[in-house]
Design a binder for these strands. Structure first.
Length: 477
RNA sequence: GCCGAGGUGGCAGAAUGGUUAAUGCGACGGACUGCAGAUCCGUUUCCUGGGGGUUCGAUUCCCUCCCUCGGCUCCA
């Protein structure tokens, strides 16, 4: 398995510190507002990373932090007149529901920043004691970048050439513009904790290193997040942890997910170009949305067009899953004891070889796009024999379904199909279809069309073919 | 200004120092159908930002220019 490490800027063979265990840490959400479709990309990508590693035998401990207290949360909560921690809780609950719908279930632990205050204070203490951090007059504590010579090695930034204040105003309490707050002095009315430097709350960067220090130790295997976090956030994490512990590197591999752009630009509240994640799951369905995300290399930027991207993904997803549905239906119809033939030709062997190839493709820096292209090839292959599936014995059907099972396990596709097999065997629908068949047989197309329209209104699509009528649920797949 | 990622057909997006540059969407044609949709098959063999260079051969490697996007100390 090889992964592109954004620290060394090259693809490297993956070797965990203590195999088969893998510590995976991904920067999660600051739940000050509902998650948008760009967040979804990052979390689906790392869901596939975790699924893949587990499939290949690694025992992954996947941690994704939740920054449940920061300036934006406090500002937003003040607008709404509620407690910032409660606001975070509310948006986090929605986020968790959306992740569940999207099939993102690989995360083992979602620690909240405010649950790690003792670890944060301990790390600040270590940094102050070692001379890497200083207390400002108001009781805030800052990390002094000039004391850490390795600063910039992750992002390859040169401190002298940065442009302070480009996006965020420079805090006058700092000794140097590049210093950053690790403890923020309390403001009346905001949540705060006692500390040796006065009451306050944690800065952003130190929450991650306090958590990983506690959960993984001074070094761990894999750190992920969006590319927009490389600087300053991840650079600050490196500086904090390596200064506090004296051990390096903090993470052996850094994976950075490309941004999802909305018509060429990053989503932001100020531009007003935010596509909410939950509504996108509603519109596209979990499977198509995952397909959309995974249909680009994770490191590439991905351009989202709200007018067409989700529709395209739905069309493609429906096409991809068609043979899978046919196989599953054939299996359900006959039961495991149904008699039948072997799959024609060497198809079963091809399926086996394809699964190996899919694993190899994903093992090459998680090239999900290439894997999807291979899966479409398999769909085409199976489409050629769609009519004769019924003749194949259950064991044979399961063999040729193997690439789809792979896609389900690793990419998280087609899970909705598995979750709701009862949709396929609704007696009521079968009765309506039978009534419509009788109407068609006697040439009563007005009645036949009326039944079809009513079924469609109820979310059932009817398809007429040579072998009779078939039906399926319409709507998000 | 500095750091980084990109520029591939109508659109979204892969890949590779070498026969027709994947895959999907869309479009077109056909099969199926009472019609439609869905599905299946086929076609879309004049697509690699501009200019240099290395090479027998460059979309791929090197240089340069242009453009877009991201970051520059609280963004997935």
């Amino acid at each position: 398995m090889a992964v592109y490490d954004s620290r060394t800027r090259e693809a490297r063979v993956f070797a965990p510190i203590t195999p088969p265990r893998v510590g995976l840490y991904v920067c999660g959400l600051t739940p000050y507002a509902p998650a948008h479709i760009g967040h979804g990309r990052t979390f689906v990508v790392f869901d596939v990373v975790a699924r893949s590693l587990r499939r290949w035998g690694y025992r992954v401990f996947y941690v994704q932090n939740v920054t449940n207290l920061d300036d934006k949360l406090i500002a937003r909560a003040a607008e709404e007149g509620i407690d910032p921690l409660a606001l975070a809780e509310r948006h986090f609950a929605e986020y968790a529901r959306t992740m569940e719908r999207l099939g993102v279930r690989s995360v083992d632990y979602l620690p909240f920043a405010t649950d790690y205050i003792p670890e944060i204070l301990a790390q600040i203490r270590a940094l102050v004691d070692r001379g890497f951090a200083y207390r400002a007059a108001d009781g805030s504590v800052y990390f002094e970048v000039a004391r850490f010579p390795g600063y910039g090695k992750l992002s390859r930034q040169n401190v002298a050439e940065l442009r302070p204040g480009a996006r965020v105003e420079v805090d006058p309490r700092k000794r140097a513009p590049e210093d950053f707050a690790i403890w923020k002095a309390a403001t009346p009315g905001e949540p705060s904790w006692e500390s040796p430097w006065g009451p306050g709350r944690p800065g952003w960067h130190i929450e991650d290193t306090a958590m990983t220090g506690r959960l993984f130790g001074p070094r761990y295997d894999l750190h992920g997040g969006g590319v927009d976090l490389i600087f300053p956030h991840h650079e600050a994490e490196v500086a904090l942890s390596e200064s506090a512990t004296g051990e390096a590197p903090l993470a052996n591999y850094w994976m950075h997910c490309g941004l999802l752009l909305l018509r060429g630009e990053k989503m932001s509240k100020s531009l007003g170009n935010v596509a909410p994640l939950d509504a996108s799951v509603d519109k596209a369905g979990p499977g198509p949305l995952r397909l959309y995300y995974l249909n680009a290399h994770y490191r590439s930027p991905l351009d989202f067009d709200p007018d067409r991207s989700l529709d395209e993904a739905r069309e493609a997803y429906a096409r991809l899953r068609q043979p899978f549905d046919r196989i599953s239906e054939a299996l359900e119809r006959g039961g495991p004891d149904r008699e039948g033939t072997e799959p024609p030709g060497p198809l079963g062997d091809e399926a086996e070889a394809l699964v190996e190839r899919l694993d190899a493709t994903l093992a090459d820096d998680f090239n999900s796009r290439e894997a999807i292209a291979l899966l479409f090839g398999w769909a085409r292959r199976l489409g050629e024999l769609s009519g004769s599936l019924d003749a194949i014995a259950p064991a044979g059907l399961e063999r040729i379904r193997a690439p789809y099972d792979w896609a389900s396990e690793v990419l998280g596709l087609f899970e909705e199909r598995r979750a709701a097999p009862e949709d396929r065997s609704s007696r009521v629908v079968d009765v309506a279809i039978a009534a419509r068949a009788r109407a068609r047989a006697r040439g009563d197309f007005a009645e036949s069309d009326r039944i079809r329209d009513e079924l469609r209104a109820a979310g059932i699509d009817v398809e007429d073919g040579a072998a009779g009528s078939r039906w399926r649920r319409s709507g998000p797949g």
